[in-house]
Simulated scan of single mutants.
Amino acid sequence: MNRLARGALYLLAILLAGSAHAAETLKDVLERVSAAYGKTPPAAMVEQGTTTSFRRGEGALLRQYRAPDRFSIRIRYATGSESRVLAGEQAWQQGAAANPILRGAIVLQVARIALPWNMLAQASALVDLGPSAMEDGKPLRAIGFPLEENLRLVVEVDAQDGRILRSRGIQRIGAGSMEFATVYSEFRHGQGRMHAAREEHYAMGQHTGFSVIHKVAYPESLPDDAFAP
Score class of each variant (00 low, 15 high):
228 A>V: 07
102 L>K: 08
93 Q>L: 08
214 H>K: 12
49 G>C: 06
212 V>N: 06
225 D>N: 14
167 S>T: 14
169 G>L: 07
74 R>H: 14
106 I>F: 06
19 S>I: 12
143 I>W: 00
85 V>W: 06
210 F>Y: 15
144 G>A: 12
49 G>N: 04
81 S>Q: 15
141 R>I: 05
70 R>V: 03
51 T>F: 08
43 A>S: 13
196 A>R: 03
32 R>C: 07
215 K>T: 08
145 F>V: 00
119 M>G: 01
217 A>I: 01
165 L>D: 00
128 D>N: 07
22 A>E: 12
184 Y>L: 13
24 E>A: 09
226 A>N: 10
147 L>P: 00
180 F>Q: 10
89 E>M: 03
57 G>C: 06
9 L>F: 00
104 G>C: 06
186 E>L: 12
159 A>I: 00
66 R>M: 04
6 R>Y: 01
52 T>I: 10
53 S>D: 13
9 L>K: 09
136 D>M: 07
150 N>M: 02
220 E>Y: 02
39 K>S: 14
216 V>S: 03
101 I>W: 02
94 Q>C: 02
207 H>L: 11
50 T>M: 05
61 L>P: 00
28 D>G: 03
220 E>K: 13
58 E>P: 01
211 S>W: 01
25 T>K: 10
143 I>D: 00
166 R>V: 02
206 Q>V: 15
137 G>C: 10
225 D>Y: 14
80 G>V: 07
203 A>E: 05
163 R>Q: 12
164 I>W: 04
143 I>F: 01
68 P>S: 14
127 V>R: 13
121 A>E: 13
153 L>V: 02
145 F>C: 00
22 A>V: 11
124 S>E: 15
74 R>F: 06
208 T>D: 02
198 R>L: 13
14 I>L: 14
75 I>E: 05
101 I>E: 10
50 T>G: 02
82 E>D: 15
61 L>N: 02
41 P>M: 08
59 G>I: 14
41 P>K: 08
137 G>S: 09
134 M>V: 01
8 A>K: 10
85 V>A: 06
10 Y>L: 15
121 A>Y: 00
176 G>D: 15
17 A>E: 03
210 F>Q: 15
218 Y>C: 08
165 L>H: 09
81 S>D: 15
220 E>Q: 13
203 A>N: 05
140 L>V: 07
30 L>W: 02
19 S>V: 14
206 Q>W: 05
185 S>Y: 05
203 A>M: 11
63 R>N: 13
36 A>I: 05
229 P>E: 11
150 N>Y: 05
203 A>R: 08
110 V>A: 04
76 R>G: 04
201 H>F: 12
5 A>E: 09
217 A>L: 15
72 S>G: 03
128 D>C: 04
158 D>M: 08
16 L>N: 03
170 I>D: 02
29 V>Y: 03
70 R>W: 10
220 E>T: 13
36 A>M: 12
94 Q>F: 08
140 L>K: 09
164 I>E: 01
1 M>N: 04
152 R>K: 14
194 M>D: 07
101 I>P: 00
44 A>K: 07
31 E>R: 07
54 F>P: 01
1 M>Q: 06
146 P>A: 13
13 A>Q: 12
199 E>M: 10
131 P>A: 10
172 R>Q: 12
189 H>Y: 05
37 Y>N: 04
167 S>M: 09
73 I>C: 03
84 R>Y: 11
221 S>V: 06
16 L>M: 13
90 Q>C: 01
165 L>E: 03
163 R>L: 14
218 Y>G: 06
168 R>Q: 11
86 L>G: 01
126 L>W: 00
